[in-house]
Design a binder for these strands. Structure first.
Lengths: 251, 251
DNA sequence: TGTAAAACCTATCAAACGATAGATATAGAC
DNA sequence: GTCTATATCTATCGTTTGATAGGTTTTACA
């Protein structure tokens, strides 16, 4: 694993280019799946190449053959997650972008925001597999390691940006509005924390599993938050809010 | 570090019990501070006993003398964080409990909730030190290790419980209401994610630091969320909400 | 002074870990 | 059969890591 560029199928000018083992891609995929789970369950440093090799049924240097070094393997996992993320959120995100381009109303933006959060939640629920992804992503974003830039640029940032733009539309403010951005940050952080912080979520909620029903409950709560965006200011209970504000701001 | 019970000052029946070095407590504290920062910056497994010993200016077995083994040191750090947490939130939490005992109004509960969240935020802002705590806590709760039970039982659970009770009061529901609990979970997760996920927070918000002003912005947003609790249902825009709901629920 | 306790040290150990050298197996073309 | 490319292996290496054995230093007290 001294070479970070994983060896790929090099097309040789020689006619024997199709020779050799034919199971490489299959083995590579098997290793990648095992690694995704392992790196989802524990940190980069905690997961050993030996444990992945053994679980994959291959020898240690086979990992290096396919992925270069440990970091290369880790980054390949991140790239796989990004790919899956894209295939699940592209539709909702594209529709949201289209609506923004057409200068849609605040309520339309709100609906698109709910659809986008729904799509994101849909990506995160349903199997141990997706749980590993969420944990992988949360851990890497929290404690930046070899795959941070991949996940930040290709997953986190696009998601937060489109969310922030929708919220800005709801708030009738500009695209760069920090308040909208902060709301987007908190909203997506909540969702990610919910799924990736599985231990405390299950224990706090006294749930035995996180399935579609539990996810629906969470989405319902998040949708209520989305519904509340931009509306607390026009509340008739404005005085009470202002009083509450004063009390909480002895800074 | 083969003994998990750290050696303490044993009171001997012998008159010579007060003999020996007198700097133990000072050394212990220095090691603990160094360890708190190190374990805040990186995971249990990533931080080495050698790095802590070196930074503390002591030899490796000195760690074992004071704390038993590596896990003992880690748990001592968690206990220190819990102690600090308690000293910062006890007042706000006690007032909230008192108010709940007196069957206070929803708006009073809301004000107490804001005060509690404010106290919690106040614990997390201001120095590299508190940043380490937040990261230590978030990491350990996310990936349970040697100190999980300490932090869960003594920090996380009490915080979420009192928050959930306040929210239940706002919602005029019972103490065990899952909806209130979920809101509490999401609220505290947001705050913790905000502070512990420093890298993505700074980058997402284009901030160069997280100081009192930035924290105030976050609190303002969280207070808006608190204000919105229990109020979206009585909105005159109820129809629009229901329509939005339908669109986001093709499950 | 001697004794004992507290606190600290150097040197060493066994195990774990990522990576590498060199070899081998598989499979197709000629 | 040979040659070549692809894929995989065993054995080994150098380094790191938590822990331990045995020893030393500091300090108070009789």
């Amino acid at each position: 694993m001294s070479e970070t560029v994983p060896p790929g199928p090099k097309t040789s000018a020689r006619a024997a280019a199709n020779a050799g083992y034919r199971k490489g891609e299959e083995t590579r995929k098997r290793i990648l799946d095992i690694a995704l789970r392992a790196f989802g369950d524990a940190s980069f440093r905690s997961v050993t190449t030996r444990q992945i090799a053994e679980a994959s049924g291959v020898s240690l240097p086979a990992l290096q053959y396919h992925f270069g070094d440990k970091e290369g393997l880790y980054r390949a996992c991140a790239a796989a997650i990004v790919e899956r993320y894209r295939s699940h959120t592209t539709a909702a995100a594209a529709k949201a972008r289209e609506a923004l381009r057409e200068d849609c109303s605040a309520e339309t933006a709100r609906a698109h925001l709910k659809a986008l959060i729904g799509a994101l939640a849909g990506l995160l629920v349903g199997s141990k597999e997706t749980e590993s992804w969420a944990q992988f992503v949360a851990r890497e974003l929290r404690d930046p390691g070899p795959a941070f830039e991949i996940l930040y640029e290709s997953l986190w940032r696009p998601g937060v940006e489109i969310t922030a733009r929708l919220i800005a539309r709801i708030l009738a403010s500009t695209d760069g509005d920090p308040a909208a951005r902060l709301q987007a940050l908190l909203l997506i952080s909540s969702l990610l924390a919910f799924q990736s912080g599985r231990n405390i979520t299950l224990r706090t909620m006294h749930w035995s599993t996180i399935g579609p029903q539990e996810m629906a409950t969470v989405l319902s709560t998040l949708n209520a938050q989305i519904d509340a965006i931009g509306r607390s200011r026009s509340r008739p209970a404005k005085r009470a809010t202002a009083a509450g504000r004063k009390k909480a701001s002895p800074r």
